[in-house]
Structures are given as structure tokens and as C-alpha cells.
Design a protein around this nucleic acid. Structure first.
Lengths: 128, 128
DNA sequence: TCAAGTAGCTTACGATAAGTAATTTTCAGA
DNA sequence: TCTGAAAATTACTTATCGTAAGCTACTTGA
């Protein structure tokens, strides 16, 4: 269903902002999937193992982490390495493509700091 | 279920990248929802009316556009104005908070241009 | 004046994705 | 042999999405 947007004339929808850009769209739908942004941030901050990432992202289940890592690997953003030690270890690392997402994460962090900052009354809501 | 992340100690998870940052997390899950990134881009490029946005984002249905706009309005990113002309018009505009997302959209576009550009052989992959 | 059309939604419902929990596999160490 | 941890996977429930249709208020055109 997303198919009809994948024909990209190419080149910059960026030279001036067009209303719709297939390349941008693929990117935002990819990194915007649930949990993916949090996983990428954890990895950029240095987490490399399955259980480290899981521990760094509260609320994220094994099932979804596994699924998201597979997707990111398929996209070329993450590289999975099995270290044949005993016990076997699995390391996840960002590829260059993944590392380049740092700028996006920083831009989001920046916006979030400024506009969703915890001085926000939400932070003080009753909340169980 | 996202509740237990909302207790934000505040201040920058940004001074050095922490593995998890509740503020960042709210932001990325908010703007990363399906279609939201595309809607924001369309609005940043000037589209202001319901039908203009709908036309600018192929594949997006009225139902979801309506839902997303309501969410964005509730978050303070979009302002809805009913112009009492005949026929009544509804204009949507980005607030300052919404306009500030321009930097995020540009960062994503930039990354997308570089890493997902249409010359990419991925364009012909079977697709997930 | 009456049928058809447009903008901006809303409702209904089946399909897909996400959440929760339990289970699996492989090895190490006690 | 039993326990435990890591990295999944399977089974099942619930939430979100996609598709289609309907609705209301107004306009246009015949």
C-alpha cells in the first residue's frame, strides 16, 4: 500500500521543501516505528548487547526488540555479530548508515528538551 | 504503559547521550506515529487545509488524517482555525512548537537523501 | 428547483501490529 | 543434575490501522 510512493523521481525533495517526498517518507516511517527511535538512541549511547538495549529501554519487550533489530539489520542500519565465545554472545552495532542517524536523534532531543521539557506540568501529574 | 517513563528527572539527557531519556522518548513516539512525519512535512511546506494535506500525502485516509490532526492539536503542535466564511473553511497551521520541528524534518530528509536515495538498489527489493 | 459535487469529518468493521506471558536452546558453574 | 543467564520464539490478547461508507452544510450547474 506504500508501494505507490516508492517510485522516487529521485534527487532532492529537499532543495525546496516539497509537500511529499517518497525518500523522506520511507525514512520517517522506518525510524518512526514504535520503539525504533528509543533503540537507536540506546545504541548510539553505546549499548551493544540484546539485554543491554532491553534494559535501557523500559517497557520494550524481548519480542519487539528482536523484531525491530531484525528490521534495522535488514535495512542496513544495524549489524549483528555473533561472538563465538562461551556462552555465545550477540553484539549489535550501528553501521555507518546507523551512526549517521545521530544527527536526527540530536535534532529530536533538542526539540524535545525545548518543547516537552519536564518543567511541563505533565511531569507532575498524580500518576499512580 | 508508557506511564512509568514519564517521571522525568528533567534537564538534559542530552549533555551526554544517555541510554534512555523520557523526554526524547515522548517526542519520538509522538512525531514518529504513522503518517505524522508526512503530515508535518506537508504542513511545513505550506499546506494548510484538510484536503490539501490529504492530497499531499498519498495513501493517507481521511480518518487517520483527522485523528492525527486532533492529536497534534492536543499536543500544541498544530492550531485549528475555523474560518466562518461561506462555506465554512478549516485552516490548520503549525504553532511555534510545530514550526520548530523543521530542524528535525530537515535532519531526516538529509539522512534519507544520503542513505535511501533512489539510486539505491533497495528501491527494487521485494519489500519487507 | 433539483441532482450532483465538495470539504471535513465520523462510524463500522475486518486486518495488521503491538503487548503480555510462557517456553526454548545452549552453555557455564555449583 | 540443577540452576541461571542470554537471546530468542511461540501463543494468545488487545490496540491501532486501513477501507469503505455515510453524514452535514454548502455550492454549482442544468
Amino acid at each position: 500500500m506504500i508501494d505507490d510512493m516508492d517510485r522516487d523521481t529521485g534527487e532532492a525533495c529537499m532543495r525546496h521543501l516539497t509537500a511529499f517526498c517518497p525518500t523522506y517518507h520511507r525514512a520517517i516511517e522506518l525510524i518512526g516505528r514504535r520503539w525504533t527511535g528509543a533503540i537507536l538512541r540506546a545504541m548510539l549511547s553505546g549499548e551493544a548487547r540484546f539485554s543491554e538495549i532491553a534494559a535501557a529501554v523500559p517497557g520494550l519487550s524481548d519480542r519487539l526488540l528482536s523484531e525491530r533489530l531484525k528490521e534495522l539489520e535488514a535495512e542496513g542500519i544495524v549489524r549483528r555479530t555473533v561472538v563465538p565465545s562461551t556462552p555465545v554472545r550477540v553484539d549489535y552495532a550501528l553501521t555507518d548508515m546507523g551512526l549517521a542517524l545521530n544527527e536526527v536523534i540530536v535534532a529530536v532531543s533538542h526539540w524535545a528538551e525545548h518543547w516537552l521539557a519536564p518543567t511541563d506540568e505533565r511531569a507532575n501529574l498524580p500518576k499512580r
